[in-house]
Amino acid sequence: MKWLLLLLMMSQAFASHQQYRKRISQMKVEYDEADVLAEIKFGRELAAKILGKYQLLSDQKLQQYVSTLGAGLAQMIGRPELDYHFAVIVDDDINAYAGPGGYIFITSGAIALMKNEAQLIGVLAHEIAHVNKRSVVKKLKIRGDDDSLAAGLGVLIGGATASYRKALESALDKAFDLLFEEGISMKEELLADYLALLTLQAQGLNWQSYIDYLANMDKAIAKGQGEVVQKTHPPTSERIDSLNRHVKSWDESPKEVNQTRFKKYGKVN
């Protein structure tokens, strides 16, 4: 028994060797400035493409409301190196899209379904969470140029070439598909929901209301208002179940939903 304990403790000590083998050059940051600029550049292209398909809602007050809340949330939970941009687009379907570089779209259908500010904050936080995860960027391997001498020589020796324009066009198509046809991973959608809930909790807002919003969305989808969201997200019932599992250990949800303000600015005309 003594020896077993010894062995266990020793294996604990020995387990860490891989971290020591790594040289400083291998401890790269996940992404650097060049990667961010590439992401922003790509995100703009994609946003322009989305706006080629959907119209901006003309309700200026609503747009300002969403943008202001979004800016605040970006400060709270967003990546500081990005400028997040928000827009409500005209579409009866209930959905929201998070493009690389922080370009976030919410449909008028989604806004119309919302009952209070807490729900809007939840949805915005969910989208910001997607931008934070950089999943479109990672999936499409959007990276900044590596301008260093080594990379240049490496290209020479390795003979690698990139046809930038072709690559960009196919990347844009692929990104569009991801947002409108395939969806990012289901696991990530559930995680984004969880982060939305955490954001509401951190704000002392009614996080239960976000779960209610998902329940309402479920009903609306049944009526035919969820063409895209059905393709790109997990079934709403699964999303609700996942969140309920998370909140089992939580204290009771606060009641605050910022109703007054929502009534003033948040109605779709």
Partner: peptide
């Protein structure tokens, strides 16, 4: 000398 960049080393 080793010159390391994001994906390659000379």
């Amino acid at each position: 000398i080793g010159i390391h960049s994001k994906s390659s080393t000379i």
